[in-house]
Each structure stands twice: as structure tokens, then as C-alpha cells.
């Protein structure tokens, strides 16, 4: 009969590993859409560069600075966001694997003798706090992405209005494929933002619980007072 203590440890291990794998899955999925968006921004930048190389026809005004820089800004911000997530995903995978390997060999490895030196054992606490650190960075970048999204939306609306002849055309009228790519990108970005907002609202709720827990422990331990 297995003593109750090991069942508790097993539960903690399994739940923690499951959680880490869920976070890996979240990071992986949330990189996929930015890849498409980055490709679309590259198309937009090529289009902008093409316009800049041509002299605008006399009857058309030159392209505004805002229209020129927006795809570059969107490209940079989304690339940075995706890159940070990718880096954190790789780091988290490596740490999860170490923990998994450790737990798989736990039965044989953890029977320490009295004078045995402790081996390097991966700490779940450290990994969980590293994950909190990564998510805090991603959360900050996400806020910046929200602002970037507003820029992108304004930029795309202007070009759509141009295509629909609702505003005077620019130096080079954008073609249908340009609008299709950007419309898919924006619609996708809208869904992606919703997905990320949903994730971070739940993450923030969990962080509040953790912060309350930390405050409770800090006060119980009473580190600031000398007895």
C-alpha cells in the first residue's frame, strides 16, 4: 500500500507538469498568428518601398509619413512579441524536460543516504517563478501590441477607403490582393487579441491570488521584525 505522502507529492508533480505543458502550448499557439501577420507586414513594407521609389503622379499627394512608418512599426512590434514568446517557450521547454526527467527517475534517485551530497535537482518553485517573470514581460509587450493594433487598424481603413474610392487615391492605388491580405490579418488580429486578452485576464486573476499568498506568508514569517 502506497503511503499517503507519496500520493500528495505525485499529485503536485503531475498537476505542475500539466500546468507547465499548458503554458508551453499557450506560448506555441500564440506565436502562430504573429508569423502570418509578420508576412503581411513584409508585403506592406515592400508595397510602401515601391511607392517611395516611384515619383508620385502630379495630381496625387505624396504618401503621408504615418502611412510609411506604420507597417514598419507593426512589423517590429509583432516580431518582438513573437520572438520573446519563442525564446521563453524554448527556455520553458528545457526546464520542463529537466523536471520531467527528474520525476521519471524519482523512485530510484531520491533515496538519499545520510552522508550523500545533494545532486542538482530542478526546482519547481524556481521554474514557476521564472514563468511568472516571462509572462510579466509578455504582458507588458502585449499592452504595446494593443496600441500598435490601433495604428494598424487606422492604416488599413485608409487604404480600404482608397480602394472603395471614398477618398482620393494615393501615389499607387493598392490592389485587391493587398486588401485581402490585410483584411485577413486584421480580422485574425482581432481574434488573436481576444484570445490574448482572455488569457491575460485569467493570468492577472491568478497573479492576484499569488500576491495575496505571498503577502500572507511574508507577514506570517515576519522577516522585518527582529525577535
Amino acid at each position: 500500500m502506497i503511503p499517503k505522502k507519496n500520493e500528495i507529492e505525485n499529485d503536485i508533480q503531475q498537476n505542475s507538469l500539466k500546468y507547465l505543458h499548458n503554458q508551453e502550448r499557450y506560448l506555441f499557439i500564440s506565436i502562430l498568428f504573429p508569423i502570418y501577420s509578420i508576412i503581411v507586414q513584409i508585403v506592406n513594407m515592400v508595397y510602401i518601398i515601391k511607392i517611395l521609389k516611384r515619383s508620385p503622379p502630379p495630381q496625387h499627394p505624396p504618401l503621408p509619413v504615418f502611412d510609411i512608418i506604420t507597417p514598419f512599426i507593426v512589423f517590429l512590434m509583432i516580431s518582438l512579441f513573437a520572438l520573446m514568446k519563442f525564446i521563453f517557450l524554448m527556455l520553458l521547454r528545457k526546464k520542463s524536460k529537466n523536471v520531467q526527467n527528474y520525476f521519471n527517475g524519482l523512485d530510484n534517485q531520491n533515496q538519499m543516504k545520510d552522508n550523500e551530497e545533494p545532486r542538482e535537482i530542478p526546482s519547481l518553485i524556481k521554474i514557476l517563478y521564472d514563468l511568472i517573470k516571462y509572462m510579466n514581460i509578455v504582458r507588458f509587450l502585449f499592452l504595446v501590441i494593443n496600441i500598435t493594433f490601433v495604428f494598424y487598424l487606422q492604416w488599413s481603413i485608409r487604404f480600404i477607403l482608397t480602394y472603395l474610392h471614398l477618398i482620393p487615391p494615393g501615389p499607387l492605388p493598392p490592389n485587391l490582393l493587398f486588401h485581402v491580405f490585410n483584411s485577413i490579418s486584421e480580422f485574425g488580429l482581432l481574434i488573436y487579441m481576444f484570445f490574448e486578452w482572455h488569457h491575460f485576464l485569467r493570468w492577472n486573476k491568478k497573479m492576484r491570488k499569488i500576491e495575496n499568498f505571498e503577502k500572507l506568508v511574508f507577514e506570517e514569517i515576519n522577516l522585518e521584525k527582529n525577535k
Binding site: 507519496n6 507529492e9 531520491n110 538519499m112 526546482s123 517563478y129 500576491e211 503577502k215
Partner: peptide, 21 residues
Amino acid sequence: YRSSNMIILSILEAIFRAEQG
């Protein structure tokens, strides 16, 4: 709170694991 909690929880984890072993 966080930096001290990391230490406290690491200590708890180490003792918890040793006890399980």
C-alpha cells in the same frame, strides 16, 4: 514579498522532497 517568498518556498520544497524520499 516575491524575493523572500522564493526563498521560503524553495526551502519548503527541499524539505518536502526530502521527506517524500
